[in-house]
């Protein structure tokens, strides 16, 4: 069953822009990206949109649909009633390049600032041996497709652009947690780095990153809060602090 759907698409660049009305055909089984492609093919050949896989796996097509951060290719048109206007805007938090395409380099800059994986020096590639139960926590975070919807939604930078230099954002917090929980990572200072360099303390655990993640990664519960707790282990818990001093048994280091 097809119908003529009503759309509003943000068009413009960093200088100016506005919501433009469109009417376009919608067919059964389609997703929002299909309609955007139809607009390109029939009415607005210069409409800019970034996409790649159309399968929710490349993380390119992030945008906001009726105000909610989503992947264009994973948002089915049958979520909307035929008379509902569907509004499509670019991600708000990043500089816009053109129409629905934003410049997400903020995230790559932050990624480069995070110290990389450091395996034991005496292990050659190919000699890594790990048990499944030791890597499964990190594996959840490897599902990330780098769509940056979480970064876009996080109010710390979405509503306070001035926090960008201090704050790395949820996508990089899961990266920090992934490495800190990695059985073969030897760096011992990842908690301190998360707090001092990544701005972990800016997060007030309101969970919007978790709400929008298309990979359903439990960003807040499984990465951010555990990292906050690991910081508390180091900095604020006198019981573990005393234990480390007295027993000289550093249960928080890499060994356990």
């Amino acid at each position: 069953m097809s119908y003529q759907g009503k759309f509003r698409v943000w068009r413009g660049d960093h200088a100016s822009g506005e919501l433009t009305d469109f009417t376009a055909e919608v067919n059964e089984g389609e997703v929002v990206l299909d309609v955007v492609h139809r607009l390109q093919a029939t009415q607005a050949p210069d409409l800019a949109v970034r996409w790649n896989c159309k399968a929710g796996k490349c993380g390119s097509c992030s945008a906001e649909i009726n105000g909610r951060p989503r992947l264009l290719c994973m948002t089915r048109m049958n979520m909307f009633t035929p008379d509902q206007v569907v509004t499509i805007t670019p991600m708000r938090t990043f500089p816009v390049i053109k129409d629905l395409v934003t410049d997400v380099s903020f995230n790559y800059v932050k990624a480069r600032e995070l110290p990389a994986f450091e395996p034991p020096k005496d292990l050659a590639p190919g000699e890594y041996r790990m048990q499944q139960i030791d890597v499964e926590r990190s594996q959840e975070f490897r599902k990330c497709i780098e769509c940056f919807l979480c970064q876009n939604t996080c109010h710390v930078v979405r509503d306070h652009d001035e926090n960008k230099p201090e704050f790395s954002g949820p996508r990089l917090f899961i990266r920090a947690a992934e490495l800190d929980m990695h059985p073969l990572d030897t760096r011992d200072d990842r908690k301190e780095t998360a707090q001092a360099e990544q701005g972990l303390g800016y997060c007030n655990i309101t969970k919007c990153c978790t709400e929008v993640c298309p990979e359903h990664i439990k960003i807040t519960d499984n990465a951010i809060i555990p990292m906050k707790e690991r910081v508390v282990d180091r900095k604020y818990d006198p019981i573990t602090w005393l234990g480390r001093k007295i027993a000289r048994r550093d249960q928080l280091s890499n060994q356990p």
Binding site: H14, R92, T93, F94, P95, D103, F106, D161, K164, P165
Partner: peptide, 8 residues
């Protein structure tokens, strides 16, 4: 990283 709102 961009720090200005006006390029959004």
């Amino acid at each position: 990283p961009s720090t200005a709102h006006h390029d959004r």
